Simulated assay, not measured.
Amino acid sequence: MNRATLPILSRLRSLQATSSFAPGGARVIAAADDRNPLAQLLRAVNETMLGRSLQFDSASGPSLTLDVSGRRVLRMTSAIGLPGAESCLGIETLEDEHKDDLIKLLQAIAAPRHELRVTSGPIGRGGEQVSVGLPVALLADLLLIDLNESEPGHLAPETDEPAPVEPEGAPSAPSSFQPASEDDSGLADFAAAFGPDLVAWLIVDGEDAGKSNGPEEMISHLRTFLEDEREAVDRQLDALSPTPGAPICVLLGATLIDGHSILCARLSAAPILGVVEGDGTSAALAAWRGLAL
């Protein structure tokens, strides 16, 4: 297998992960027996493209809230039960000089042998520019953590929100959109409207069944994945949809190695799976909105 495709398949396999929620609605991202809860925390941040506030709670008691955007940690807005947090609290934008202190706090909140949960909400305050803050890739490199690795048997972090948002609002990570109509045709038109950033795509079922475009190696991986995991994909999309089978478009965050995002959309029973160069949020939103015209 081409090593460059591994991060892509990691994102695809994330669709079959079943999210577990604690009382109160927080999503469990690391169980008590998870060997590396800190990796799960960083992966949750890495999947957050648009501005969100992520509150991490450890079953041992401490809590930490971060404003994140564009796979960067912008600032720390709250810390409970974490000694030394004052060095990062009250900082408008975290910079390189804060990274060591932040890493110590992340290690403390993601202590082994304790369940780790995350709650996502609107970003705490302004200043969502993705050119500032501390890149999660830098933090992962310093901690020797592979953001693309997914350990079998442990909870995956990609599905951050239990329900998608409407196109008019700011989508959470993964970005997800719903059209105003439920016409089960038009996925090929959607792919065409997406433009060249959609470097590979495959449609199964519906009027456009069998249509695809892009490098054959990528198409082959998409086809194999859908053949093996179609039911899991449908279950995950249903978990993100207001009703089972409803139209939905989900965009999973870009990988660090090759800058690809993963597109998974459905109109009625017809799904499309694709590989997007870079973020692609704006192109996805524009193309998805066009289906309702």
Rank of each mutant, 00 (worst) to 15 (best):
G51P: 06
P162C: 08
T77W: 01
Q236A: 14
A269G: 14
L202D: 07
W201I: 07
Q55K: 12
S131W: 09
S19R: 14
D205Y: 05
D228S: 15
A44S: 14
S10K: 02
L256F: 06
S241F: 03
F56I: 09
A79P: 02
G81R: 05
I123G: 02
Q129N: 15
G214I: 03
G51M: 09
S58A: 12
I103C: 08
L237T: 04
L251Q: 00
L291I: 12
Q16E: 14
H260T: 08
D197E: 15
H221A: 11
L12R: 03
T119R: 14
R72Q: 14
R11G: 06
L256I: 11
I203Q: 03
D141P: 05
L198F: 05
L144W: 13
Q16I: 14
L102A: 00
V118E: 02
T18L: 12
L50D: 06
P164G: 05
G121A: 14
G274I: 03
D141E: 15
V28T: 04
A192F: 09
A200P: 01
Q40H: 13
G25A: 12
E277F: 11
S176F: 00
S150I: 04
L155H: 04
G153Y: 04
S87K: 07
T18V: 15
L54M: 05
L105T: 01
L147N: 00
A85Q: 08
I109H: 02
V199D: 05
R11T: 10
A30H: 01
A17T: 12
L12G: 03
P135K: 06
E158I: 10
R235K: 06
G274R: 00
Q178I: 14
D234S: 12
A170T: 11
E166R: 15
L9W: 05
A200D: 01
L222E: 00
